[in-house]
């Protein structure tokens, strides 16, 4: 088995999950389950692609993805925070809307069929084992993850966000605006999810295809629980998932494992989360205000 190729493939697969999972952790720690994640990643992938296609600059594309994600987070905020709509319905609706809107625009601008190749981010350290990766991967591992960890742990914003997600009444009593804090979490989280999606178009493919995120958002939802809402375990789970995914591609060409269906391997993380949930059972500690809209009485 080619270890260098395996590591490189792992890092590529892990990157979108890394961003999306961190984004979802931030929103869930504030008490909002964002099922709009799949749509946000999709829209981020499309938004990044469209701007890059028109400007030739992947950097501007990335910026566009960030803005798209922030808007998607804002929409979730409007629905779940301001209006207090049921979070599952709001999330599923947001996902349906963003995927529909992206595909509509794609069809409108490109007629659906033709695959426009755009400029894309280049691989860094090509050929150097372990270090061969995209800038976004490096940023994710070396900057975004530590920053998110530090943000949640040691900054005022992070403390507020956790307080609002655990005990909004207490946060309110301490003079923290529950609404504003949740909006901030959704907007930051949305931006990260969209970057995760944009990585697919701007770094991996250099183009946009239908069904590009292929359920990665749902994987992120699973990884968040698997990591119990903590950043470093989330990074580890994303890498683990990616290793399994990359390994099964490699294994598929080795004779011993040729008959193990690839799909079973891909399904493993989902099943692992469900098993983890069953084992943890009542012991699993969700954020205190998970799924609960807050309204002062």
């Amino acid at each position: 088995m080619n270890v260098v190729a395996l590591i490189a493939a792992t890092l590529v697969t892990a990157t979108p999950l890394l961003y999306a999972t961190i984004g979802e952790i931030i929103t869930e720690r504030s008490g909002i389950l964002n099922l709009g994640i799949e749509g946000t990643m999709y829209a981020g992938a499309f938004g990044g692609f469209i701007v890059t296609a028109n400007t030739g600059s992947p950097l501007l594309g990335l910026l566009a993805a960030v803005v798209t994600g922030m808007l998607a987070g804002g929409l979730m905020g409007l629905l779940t925070v301001t209006l207090g709509v049921n979070q599952h319905v709001a999330g599923i609706g947001t996902t349906l809307l963003l995927i529909g809107a992206s595909e509509f625009s794609n069809r409108l601008l490109f007629g659906g069929g033709s695959l426009t190749q755009t400029a894309k981010f280049a691989l860094l350290f090509t050929g150097v084992p372990v270090l061969e990766m995209y800038l976004l991967t490096m940023l994710g591992l070396a900057v975004v993850a530590p920053l998110a960890w530090w943000l949640l742990r040691s900054t005022g914003l992070g403390l507020r966000l956790r307080a609002v997600g655990e005990n909004p009444e207490a946060a309110d009593a301490a003079g923290i605006s529950v609404e504003r804090t949740r909006y901030v979490a959704l907007v930051i989280g949305g931006a990260l999810m969209a970057v995760g999606g944009a990585f697919l178009t701007l770094a991996v493919l250099g183009t946009f295809t239908l069904n590009i995120t292929n359920g990665r958002g749902w994987v992120a939802i699973a990884l968040v629980i698997f990591a119990r809402w903590r950043i470093w375990p989330a990074v580890a789970s994303a890498l683990l998932f990616a290793v399994v995914d990359a390994a099964q591609l490699q294994l598929a060409i080795t004779p011993t494992f040729a008959h193990v269906p690839r799909e079973l391997m891909i399904a493993l993380p989902y099943l692992a989360v469900i098993i983890a949930l069953a084992v943890a059972g009542r012991g699993l500690r969700y954020p205190g205000a998970y799924l609960k809209p807050y309204r002062r009485t």
Binding site: V219, Y270, Y290
Partner: peptide, 20 residues
């Protein structure tokens, strides 16, 4: 039996069914 939130578990079985 265990009070595990059904939203996530039912959701996660969707991609599993698709993969199956």
């Amino acid at each position: 039996r265990l009070g595990v939130d059904e939203v996530v578990t039912t959701l996660l079985l969707n991609p599993v069914a698709l993969l199956l």
